[in-house]
Design a protein around this nucleic acid. Sequence first.
DNA 1: GGCTATTTTCGAAGCGCTTCGACGATGGGC
DNA 2: GCCCATCGTCGAAGCGCTTCGAAAATAGCC
Lengths: 342, 342
Amino acid sequence: MATIDDVARAAGVSISTVSYALSGKRSIKESTRNRVLDAAAHLGYLPNASARTLAANRSQIFAVTAPLHPDTDHSAHMVFAMEVTKAARDLDYDTLLLVHNDALDGMKRSAATSLADGIIVLDVDAHDPRADLARQLACPVVFIGVPEDTTGLVCVDLDFEAAAALAVDRLVAAGRKRIGLISHPEETLSRESNFPLRFLHGFERHVAELGIEHVEITPRTHRGLEAVEDVLDAMPDVDGLVLNTNVDVASSVGAALALHGKSVPTDVSVIAAGVTFSTARFPVPFDTIPLDAHASCSAAVEMLARIVETSASLPETTLIPPTYIDQGSVAPAFGHAPTPAR
Amino acid sequence: MATIDDVARAAGVSISTVSYALSGKRSIKESTRNRVLDAAAHLGYLPNASARTLAANRSQIFAVTAPLHPDTDHSAHMVFAMEVTKAARDLDYDTLLLVHNDALDGMKRSAATSLADGIIVLDVDAHDPRADLARQLACPVVFIGVPEDTTGLVCVDLDFEAAAALAVDRLVAAGRKRIGLISHPEETLSRESNFPLRFLHGFERHVAELGIEHVEITPRTHRGLEAVEDVLDAMPDVDGLVLNTNVDVASSVGAALALHGKSVPTDVSVIAAGVTFSTARFPVPFDTIPLDAHASCSAAVEMLARIVETSASLPETTLIPPTYIDQGSVAPAFGHAPTPAR
DNA sequence: GGCTATTTTCGAAGCGCTTCGACGATGGGC
DNA sequence: GCCCATCGTCGAAGCGCTTCGAAAATAGCC
């Protein structure tokens, strides 16, 4: 591999001139800079990563910890890892993958050896041990997800409470008056994943504010059928349904409703909210308020880069406002003149 | 962070002694080595990654290129990426994620900058551009998957031909005489993913050798229903079915057979072969000859480490022998005394 | 033309580690 | 008691880059 010496020799300048010409950190006369650039291009020169890192004390690498729980949706995980990687590349960082059984060790190691300039934490639990570790580490850390105690942390996530409120608003705007919420199965909640609770709170608060009749159920199985039946048992004339649940449950809700003689969107209008998957290929696609991996990941990566590069101190929690994707699963209730949605 | 100097001072030795005590590359008197180890432990010393890399000319990092095609199974991908990462950690390597739109550039960059010691290539097409690139790169590359031209490459994969033969053997051993194969949808084949073809060849060769009546179909949709109907159209009295297809098709094959009055395993015995997904949670679980991510990834990573560390030159292609997982979807045909399976 | 202000380039230190050659100390053989 | 081999340790070079301070070159001004 060509080194900076080769380039310097080829361009007839000193190595510091090459370095400055390439980094732009000091002004170099146009003509010499061009000579340097040409020489570098000719030789296919790329600076040695470790030498650069050692000298500049910056590796241009972010580590990503992506734990795999038994109930983890691998597919969603991959999407997040990929989005982080893409966003990082856009800012000239590479991405190191840290696996679960190694998550804490990996974080310590990549910080202590200066392997990574910063760490992105995925799939955050309410009482995530990585939160405590992050507080001790000298290395900047950004969480995609929000643990219970955010003191001293930097977190990015969808505003789940606002997403829940938006879902309710949309249904109410369509004249829906009896709204069911299908939440995540017990096993996800019990792992103390945080966002289902935040969604639930947002939902409860908002239906209370609006005085809307409602019911919340936690699926006993990974199928939509039982979940829908639980909703119908509790509220036979339900006319609006919010799904903040996993793909297995959500994908079979449409069929379950049909089985009970409820048509979507006429009898029951449905919105999937705070979910990572697309419902576009479901038998019945639903309006969706997505947990947008791209939005969360690029925001998180940009914040991390800012912290690394400017030593900025950022607000503890950044909530990304929800967006709405219309797929035709919400329609005005019979005899209802639609009011403008917020 | 503590440096090697700090450790040397604390232990009252020179830094070279520290280095040798920690690496074991030269013998150091037991007592001094212990002093060094204690000092290092006390200070929480871990060698700076870039300094070590620069001096030793080895980064202890493998890059992984994981392209995402439209028809990519994200979930399978994540599993492979994770398995590579785990296997790499076991050999003291970290894993860098290279995303698709950056795959070739990323490979060049990580090689040219000495960012990575080696590269693992996932999801290989028959005419994968990364194959040509790998031949030019000075950096060792191992493919998980087999392109058409393997000249000068190192590839690891399931032995798909043997997997197909094994599936046929098992069905034949159960007395099945009319065997259908449901392959991958056209869009996967047309991307020139290689393994469906290798599986197909293995299947064709083996049924020909055994003189077994057979039919092969390519699903027109991503549902099992049409695929099963195509099989039944071509071979109404099919009694054995091999699935080398995607999870969407495979998961609905059980229901499709039931719909046509065929019971599994009695009327039709079914084997899923060369697939990454588990059929355990299908409505009807199938016997499986898995494309075992763990086996492929650890083999590939071990080979890559061997090449990096010993400059060994390895055989072009290593095929992993298929294994069989019994889930009860194969049973002796009516009136057939089972013969021992191979 | 001579002086200072500015631009442009260079030299060298140093980032933290590995590794080679060599030196001092110890021990065995005569 | 002396020489040589062996063991244990050290010093220093060097990996390829960034960056600071300063020197050299140029420009601007009276």
